[in-house]
Computed example of a mutant assay.
Amino acid sequence: MQFDRNGADPGGKMQSGSGEVRFDDCAVLVTGAGRGLGYETALLLASRGAKVVVADNGSDKGGDNPDVSRAAAVVREIRDAGGAAVECTADLSFLAGAEQAVDTCLSAFGRLDALAHLASPCPPLKTPSDLVERDLDLVLRTNAQAGLWLARTAWPHMASRQFGRMVFASSAGALGAPANADYSTAKSAMIGMTRCLAVDGAAHGILVNAIAPAAMTRMTEGFHPGAYADWFARTMQSSSVAPAVAYLLAHACELTGELFSIGGGRIARIVFAETEGEMMGANSIEAVRDCMPDVLADTSYFYPKNLQERSEKVAGFLGFSEKR
């Protein structure tokens, strides 16, 4: 294994400064690092000097038949290439597991600078009438619950140093996809979690962002055979997503509360927008019906960064002013 991951530069060209983006003396916790996007991210970070906690409990797509040897194999690969890494196979969806992961990082490296929560199961596609409790519980615990427990446990260590970086994996599936309600629900939760943590972290130097990756992983292996599936397998490699994740974890990154669509060498910003809307004129069902064409006209958007900014904007539409 060569440690130059296809010559990828995680963000050096995106910043006004110059030079290689490095992670020397930084300790980073990467979940889902046994394979896929987590694996590529862990190797890329290690190649740039990061000390990496490879967190992966070896579960397959449905959470069964865990292979705990995967984390150890990635650690060996990093060490064989001259990097520094330790493994963690704890179940991060419980507070005790998240604490174990953070403690592993602190014990091995004496610090925790950043975390990337990329682990996620992908339950079999099911229509709403076929949803099962086990799948929903698994995907919510592994995504949102684990993300919050990791943030809770890492928070005091980052806040005490006035520095931290967090990246969480959402999904374009949050936009809506057939037979995907349980998975999309969990991934949508990651967006709200990211934006709230970004608000809370601003005073402590903790920057929090989310990604919606498109990559060939275990989750996309089930695409129906055809031209699109073949193109996706060739184009959407996990190695093309890892540089953006690494950039968002770097000291050079000053972004927070953002959601990025990443895949195939493309990166785009996903935004929340609200139209300025229409005043109904009367408080009635009929008034709502009559103004709906104008509400849906998709004009005059604003883009609130957080709930406070949105509330102030809407209050202004409704005539409120603190100066009165």
Rank of each mutant, 00 (worst) to 15 (best):
A198H: 01
F232Y: 08
E286H: 08
A202V: 06
A210H: 05
A268W: 07
R266N: 14
E286Q: 11
V271L: 13
T256G: 09
D200V: 05
K313H: 08
L296E: 13
Y301A: 12
A252S: 12
Q308A: 11
I191S: 01
A202R: 06
N283F: 15
A203S: 10
Q308W: 13
D298N: 15
E221W: 08
V295S: 11
T185A: 07
E278Y: 11
L248T: 00
A246L: 09
M219S: 02
M216Q: 14
P304V: 05
R234F: 12
T235E: 08
P293R: 05
N209E: 03
L197D: 06
M292L: 12
A315V: 02
E322W: 07
W231H: 12
E322F: 08
G264E: 05
A297L: 07
A250Y: 00
P213K: 02
H251C: 14
E274K: 13
L307N: 14
Y247L: 10
G316D: 00
A212R: 03
A244W: 11
M190N: 04
Y301S: 11
A268H: 10
L296W: 11
E221L: 12
F223T: 09
M193R: 06
C196I: 13
V271P: 10
Y228H: 10
T299A: 15
P225H: 11
R195L: 08
G226P: 01
F232I: 09
M292V: 10
T299G: 14
M219H: 01
W231V: 00
A252D: 09
C196Y: 14
L249A: 02
Y301Q: 09
T220P: 02
P304W: 04
N283Q: 15
P304D: 00
L197V: 02
P213E: 02
A297R: 10
P243I: 00
M279R: 15
S188T: 12
A189G: 11
A246S: 12
P293V: 06
L248C: 04
Y183F: 01
S284Y: 04
H224T: 15
